[in-house]
Design a protein around this nucleic acid. Structure first.
Length: 301
DNA sequence: ATAATTTGACCTGT
DNA sequence: ACAGGTCAAATTAT
């Protein structure tokens, strides 16, 4: 099922509008710079930038990326362990795709499998090593390293390496059930026109799952199976989920919300950013267009 | 039974 | 030699 480019264009336009609005907002705030609001505007801006870049990347590079990143040893006969061994490549030489996130949850919409843990010299907390759960299935070489911040243990410092070829590969996939959910822009409340926001076949847990209860609207929108997977992460790692559970956010007053999970929040408490906009307001007049996307737009880094 | 996690060993770079 | 990253057997969870 091709994520058609037409909806992507629509999303791109809308996000571009959002960016313009954020720029305007930042300009307005510029004269009297209240830090929080300024930061928020910056976040929105970055968010839009990332979304746009991701969209463009997803539409323009999807095929290229799918073919670009192929792990040799997963296809064809075993390549002899040459002088540049697997370990060498993975540990030392790969920096190009590195991205750093600060989040207060390790959940990011992807499904990860932990393959190692290491006490880091001079650091209170161990570093956890994850690779994409779809490595076996799709040869996805995405990896990440997660470590609790020493300054704020409820914050996780996450380093990403490699790209999620699994998603790109199956964006048009033959197997939607196995396709992980990277970044999600979610338009609307839990239901719109009676449609459940949980896409059929989505790996995301439904609300009646026994997983962590996330009461916050924004958190809920960003909820993902990875969160459940991470429940057993070792002693220090339970804090984030507990934090979510203990938080008692104000009841949502919006009619429509847009929630974006972004890898680059300055404020780790903003694991998800919710834009409160009213239906029919300028930013997302064409919100109905997202019917075509089943209310979800997958954005790839 | 199968899948995921843990953890000590091993490898590489500095 | 040491630290960081990965592997893989053993263990645990589902």
């Amino acid at each position: 099922m091709a994520m058609a480019s037409a909806p992507s264009c629509a999303v791109s336009d809308l996000v571009a509008k959002g960016k313009e609005s954020a720029i305007a907002l930042r300009a307005m705030l510029g004269a009297t710079p209240p830090d929080d609001l300024g930061d928020l505007a910056e976040q929105i801006l970055r968010c839009c930038d990332r979304a746009l870049a991701a969209l463009r990347g997803a539409t323009k590079e999807s095929s290229a990326a799918a073919t670009r990143k192929r792990k040799p040893e997963l296809h064809g006969p075993q390549t002899p362990p040459a002088t540049t061994s697997k370990r060498m490549r993975l540990s030392g030489g790969e920096r190009a795709n590195k991205q750093v996130e600060k989040k207060w949850t390790m959940e990011d919409g992807f499904l990860w499998r932990k393959y190692g843990q290491k006490d880091i010299h001079g650091s209170k907390y161990p570093r956890l090593y994850f690779r994409c759960s779809y490595k076996e299935d799709h040869g996805c070489m995405a990896r990440r390293q997660v470590q609790q911040s020493e300054d704020d243990p409820s914050v996780y410092l996450i380093n990403y390496f490699g790209e999620h070829t699994c998603c790109r590969d199956n964006g048009v996939s033959e197997d939607p059930e196995s396709s992980p959910e990277p970044f999600v822009i979610n338009f609307g409340a839990s239901t719109i026109d009676g449609h459940d926001l949980q896409p059929r076949g989505s790996p995301w847990p439904s609300s009646d799952d026994d997983g962590p209860v996330v009461s916050d609207t924004s958190s809920d929108l960003c909820h993902s199976p990875a969160e459940e997977k991470e429940k057993g992460l070792g002693a220090g790692m339970g804090n984030a989920a507990e934090l979510f559970e203990q938080s008692t956010p104000p009841a949502p007053t919006l009619t429509t919300s847009m929630s974006m999970s972004s890898p680059e929040w300055d404020d780790p408490s903003q694991g998800c950013l919710v834009w409160d906009i009213g239906l029919g307001e300028s930013l997302f007049d064409g919100i109905g267009e997202f019917d075509h996307l089943d209310y979800y737009v997958r954005l790839f880094q």
